[in-house]
């Protein structure tokens, strides 16, 4: 889970979930606490789904929030 997916790709990461930014990968000070939690819960869930998904090449898993 990282923001700079290009770097992750370069070093060979196979499963990537994009995060919000470098200083707060799974937060966002501009959101209300409830919304911030929803974002973190969602993206962490995408990462869990990614772990259970077979891929054949480097893959960025899309997020909705």
């Amino acid at each position: 889970m990282c923001n700079l997916t290009n770097i992750a790709k370069t070093v060979g990461v196979n499963k990537m979930v994009p995060t919000v930014s470098v200083p707060y990968p799974l937060g966002n000070p501009q959101l209300r606490p409830d919304d911030e939690w929803a974002l973190r819960y969602h993206r962490t869930g995408v990462a869990l789904d990614a772990l259970e998904t077979d891929v054949s090449e480097q893959t960025i898993f899309p997020v909705k929030i």
Binding site: N3, L4, T5, N6, P18, V20, S21, V22, P23
Partner: peptide
């Protein structure tokens, strides 16, 4: 030069 991927 930027910090976040979408900005870059």
């Amino acid at each position: 030069l930027n910090v976040a991927m979408d900005q870059k």
